Amino acid sequence: MNSTDRTPADLLRSALATDPARPLVTFYDDATGERVELSVATFANWVAKTSNLLQDGMSAEPGERVALLLPAHWQTAVWLLACASVGTVAELGGDPGRADHVVAGPGAFEAGLACRGERYALSLAPLGRRFVPGPPEGYADYAVDVPSFGDRFVPYAAVDPEEPALVVAGTELSGAEVVERARADAAGRDGGPGARVLSGLSYDTWDGVSAGLYAALAGGGSVVLCRNLDRLDEGALAARVESERVSAIVR
């Protein structure tokens, strides 16, 4: 983290410059048994590709609204940082009928059709697999398209940290406000800056998206992001905490 960082994309760039090999997001889905670990460098690569898809493939412009109809998931985290990199406003659980673009996962495809802009579907299957035989009608398949985009991203216009960047639980935050809140959360977390936090919270509140992404970026830490954590008994949870060297639990 750099004291001059003003946007979430700045936080990611600083993390990449400081320690690209450290784990950033470790994702578990306890309904499928999936585990994915992304270092800062790997996460940043996904963000760059997705940012290029958003800017060039979807023709999204700064200030446009992207409804993210997605659960807490490593690919949702990627999209949040891609939106921050381009300057679009990420609306978690946003109204697709009022959004300029929509990115949807299983259970939200019908609702997402209300968006008249570009629509991308994510299967959220293990290893980010594509849809077979194809994506839902009205959508492009993220897993098919994103690999063809470049590993380096440069926005066409500089992102203004004072402009809206995120809408969560009905609250709109600028990029600077996201960074400020995330820094405060990281400082107050058990273990302090550099903490490895296990989060079972959804991404539909600030507390969930901070514990599950932003505070880790702001505090030089990492997150063990767990979907369907309620399927674990206390013994299995304790084993995960030990194996993942977790310093704080949020659920």
Rank of each mutant, 00 (worst) to 15 (best):
L70K: 04
A165F: 02
V66G: 04
A157H: 14
T18C: 06
V179I: 06
A211L: 00
V86E: 02
T18I: 07
V132D: 15
E110C: 09
L201A: 11
A72R: 02
L198G: 01
P20T: 07
E118D: 13
V241I: 15
W206T: 02
V78S: 06
E137F: 13
V25R: 00
F131Y: 15
S85C: 09
L92Y: 10
S210M: 03
V168Y: 01
P8Y: 04
G87M: 08
G63M: 12
D204C: 05
V223Q: 00
S14E: 09
G194R: 00
A41N: 08
G188L: 07
A84L: 09
V167N: 00
A176W: 04
D56T: 13
G87W: 04
R98T: 14
W79M: 13
V47K: 01
P164V: 03
R181T: 12
V132E: 15
S85R: 07
C226H: 08
A15C: 12
P164E: 03
G138F: 10
C83K: 05
D230Y: 14
T18M: 06
G175L: 02
A143T: 05
E172Y: 05
S202V: 03
E244T: 07
T42N: 11
A44P: 04
A218T: 01
D56H: 15
L24W: 02
P193S: 10
R6A: 15
S199C: 10
G194M: 01
E162L: 13
S222W: 00
W206S: 04
G33Q: 08
P96Y: 09
S148C: 08
A239H: 11
L81R: 06
L166N: 01
S247Q: 12
G212Y: 00
C226Q: 10
E244A: 10
L124E: 06
E163P: 02
N45Q: 15
E34N: 08
V159G: 01
L198H: 03
D5F: 01
V209F: 03
A143S: 13
E162T: 14
G33S: 11
G112H: 09
E137P: 08
L53M: 12
V154I: 13
A236P: 05
E34Q: 14
D141W: 08
T7Q: 04
F43Y: 12
G188H: 07
E242N: 09
D10A: 07
G220D: 00
A111K: 14
G107T: 12
P96Q: 10
Q75T: 14
L11C: 05
S202G: 15
E61P: 03
L70G: 03
R196Q: 06
A48L: 09
A9F: 09
L11T: 00
L16R: 11
G112W: 08
L229M: 14
T32E: 10
C83A: 14
A239S: 14
L213T: 00
T32Q: 11
T7W: 04
L124K: 08
G192E: 02
S51H: 07
A82M: 08
A9M: 06
A99C: 12
V78A: 06
K49Y: 10
R183I: 02
V241W: 04
S123N: 13
G221M: 00
T4M: 13
R231Y: 09
G194Q: 02
T7C: 06
R183A: 07
G93I: 09
L11D: 00
P96G: 10
G94T: 11
N228I: 01
V103C: 12
